[in-house]
Simulated scan of single mutants.
Amino acid sequence: MRPLAGYRSGMGRPVTLVQLADVEAAAARIAGHVVRTQLVPWSDGDRDRPLWLKPENLQVIGAFKIRGAVNAVAALDPEARARGVVTHSSGNHAQALALAARRHGVKAHVVMPTTSPAVKVEATRALGADVTLVPPAERATRVAELVAEHGYTFIPPFDHPDVIAGQGTIGLEIVTDLPEVATVLVPVGGGGLVAGVATAIKARAPQVRVIACEPELAGDVADSMRHGERRVWPVDQTYRTIADSLRVSVGELTWEHIRARVDGVLTVSEDAIRAAVVALATRARLVAEPGGAVATAAYLEHRADLPPGPVVAVVSGGNIDPALLASLLAG
């Protein structure tokens, strides 16, 4: 990775952004550890803007996060692996890191907010990680305490170059499988996914528009773009959305990638998110959690605002609480 020529952060410092070579290296590193998901056509999409789904909910842990976690753990030196790894996550990165660590013989500890869906907490523990539950506002501070106490290596859920590079492999697959794609819609919470996807796509196919998609109730990226600087929303605001995987604000490193490489942002209502979960289950036969359905919701709610040409929406995760899914399907 190298500093992007002529580009500086909001603080005026040169920023080292992930490059295409880093994403390509990640693709080689994670091969055999992740599913190469195939694009799925949306049967009744707009004729001028046909929709394809990138079903990352079909990954072994039910979300795209396995890509970045495997890449980050595989890149650790032996000393760091021996100390073990730690992270904080509402669930998807927690499961991804737990599995990546188990596959590489590394001990994993995960700090999760008490609001995490039980299905995600149980799955993380089943993968062998030690789990500590804390109030949402304390997740980062508890990780810092564990690093100080035990010397664990911290692998953030999004704000890390190896994590961003791993998530970027999705972008490589999209432009390979659908060269004529015009727009790619990507859910955004902490921003690792859209940062990586935009890195890969803008390097391989710079004419393709990459759009970040987020809930209106956790709209910090839209807020950041309006003000031209990173805006962090407090957890009592972001935790209003049903999309639990998108309740974190964009990271410092991911924001620099977004402001350099992402073309725009769309926000969606809570009703649109709920409707997208139902539509994915009943029309595409794909189980998506609310956060994983946000890009699809953006297409359904804002398709008229998109430029003509094929659209890909990333279905980023499918770890929905069964009771919630049942209630949404029941209407």
Rank of each mutant, 00 (worst) to 15 (best):
H33G: 06
D77F: 01
V23F: 03
H88C: 07
L20C: 11
A80F: 00
N71P: 09
G10E: 13
L53S: 07
K54G: 03
V73T: 03
A82F: 00
A26V: 08
D48P: 00
D44F: 11
V18T: 14
A21L: 13
E24S: 09
V35M: 11
N71I: 08
G45W: 14
G12K: 09
L76T: 09
A80M: 06
Q59V: 04
I30H: 07
H33I: 01
A69N: 04
A82L: 11
E24N: 12
V40D: 10
W52C: 04
G84F: 02
V35E: 14
A28L: 13
H88K: 02
D48H: 08
G10P: 05
A82P: 04
A69D: 03
I30D: 06
V85C: 04
A21C: 11
G68L: 05
G68W: 00
A80I: 05
A26L: 07
L20W: 11
T87H: 00
A27Q: 10
A26F: 02
A75S: 13
T16L: 11
P78H: 06
P41C: 07
P78Y: 04
V60M: 06
N57I: 03
D48W: 09
R47I: 07
T37L: 03
P14Q: 06
R36N: 10
A72G: 05
H88T: 01
R67K: 09
S89R: 00
V35K: 13
A74P: 05
H88I: 01
L51Y: 12
D77E: 13
A31G: 13
A25E: 11
D48R: 11
E24T: 13
Q59D: 04
A28F: 01
D44I: 07
G62V: 06
S43R: 14
P14L: 10
R67M: 08
D46G: 02
D46K: 08
R47V: 11
W52P: 02
Q19E: 15
V60W: 00
Q59Y: 02
A27Y: 01
R81I: 04
K65E: 03
A74T: 04
V15E: 13
A21S: 15
W42N: 03
A72V: 00
V85H: 00
W52F: 15
E79F: 01
T16P: 08
A72D: 01
G68V: 02
E79L: 10
V85T: 03
V86C: 03
F64I: 10
A74S: 13
T87L: 04
S43W: 13
R49C: 07
Q59N: 06
A26G: 10
W52T: 06
V15Y: 12
V73P: 01
A21Q: 15
R13V: 15
D44C: 10
T37E: 12
V34P: 03
L39P: 05
V23D: 05
A63V: 02
G62D: 08
N71W: 01
R29E: 08
R83L: 05
A82T: 05
L58N: 04
V85G: 00
F64S: 06
R83S: 02
G32Y: 04
Q59G: 03
L76G: 09
A25R: 14
M11W: 12
G68P: 04
L76A: 08
G45T: 09
G84W: 01
A21N: 14
A31Y: 08
L76R: 08
V18A: 06
W52H: 15
V35S: 12
